[in-house]
Nucleic acid binder design. Sequence first.
DNA 1: TCTGGGGTCCTAGGACCC
DNA 2: TCTGGGGTCCTAGGACCC
Length: 420
Amino acid sequence: MYALIDCNNFYCSCERVFNPQLRGRPIVVLSNNDGCVIARSEEAKQIGIVMGTPEYMVRDLIKKNNVAVFSSNYTLYGDMSDRVMKLMAPFVPKMELYSIDEAFLDMSELAYTDLLALGVTIRKHITQCTGIPVTIGIAPTKTLAKMANRYAKKMRAALGVHWLANKNLTRQALEFTEVNDIWGVGKQYAGLLNRNGFRTAADLASAPEDWVRTKMSVVGLRLLKELNGIPCVEWDYEPQRKKNICTSRSFGTKSQDKSLLAEAISNHASACAIKLRKDKSSAKKLNVFIHTNPFRIQDEQHEQSIDIDMNVPTSDTSEIIKYALKGLDIIFRKNHNYIKCGVIVSDLVPEEIVQKSLFDTLNRQRSKKVMETLDFVNRSLGTEIVRFAVQGFEKRYRLKREYLSQRYTTNIDEVLHINI
DNA sequence: TCTGGGGTCCTAGGACCC
DNA sequence: TCTGGGGTCCTAGGACCC
């Protein structure tokens, strides 16, 4: 048996922990640039704020209902996530961190016979220690555990735990779940399934295998088996080394200025290099992309990306910036209103096995020392103070973050003050 | 006026090799 | 007249996830 634990409305719950006055009040958290709604409290869901909606489209709704609005504060959410994950770890021999607010727990080797009771205990422990409410679904496969979790939210909200302990309970959950709510079924597959008369997960679970194989490839086949209680989704007990690393942002406002794009690209390249070094990886390939705002149909559109081979795998900031700017030079076009750009590094290899190239122009030993020093200084200052000239200092393309909360748990200047 | 960011996996088709 | 077949590797694009 496997459990899926996820934090309810995680980002909103994080905000609420440090601001108890928000209890009972609708809360939304916005994406970067304060663009879209990416998290909603129960109250916000109830008044009809839809996930992913642009903020300006729900502005009236927000005003009318006195909704508390926050810019996303990933420093805070990341730290709260660490705390929650560390609290559940001792209950099981093995677990997998699936996302910032979710984890799979392997309960197959536990001596407990009453997993429901165990779930209740874990849930209470986490809520008590962090103030973050969680929901737990327990079932024979990951897909069914996801489904059990969703069932718990909808039908067992007070208990917050649901265990598909037998065939009847599993049947009931399968019939309760519509195909578009199955983990692994997106818009396209949901459309396909509906057109062919499959309405619930129970319908899909009894679909003919070869039909599923033909229409939904091995992905669908795995899904079918998972719904029937046969585990097919791999487990990652150890976090895997990343295969791609991407840093990208929209600008606060559109721009035709190449120097501004160059500054942004330099910063994204630098961010990629920092992430690479943190992962102890080096990248061989780099991709730079820029595009105009597709929602502005009155503007002439330009969207382009370019792959660059970096000769010797690297995580050196200045080298990656250099290649990225070369890419920008090639794809940039004058007189276009650019809104977003980014850098992706791929073909990652562990840093210790970087091959020496005959034509290498960089002193790798020296570079490594420089980067270590740079990381050390920036880490101890808690922000990227030491940087390259092209990165600029005042980030001119900076995002909008009007409703940012404090970094309550990670910055001493921003801890919660209590007046007694 | 204002529409996020960061990932993974799979497949089909082309290039290339013997 | 009749012009192979099988394998691997790579990439672009699609689908999905949070």
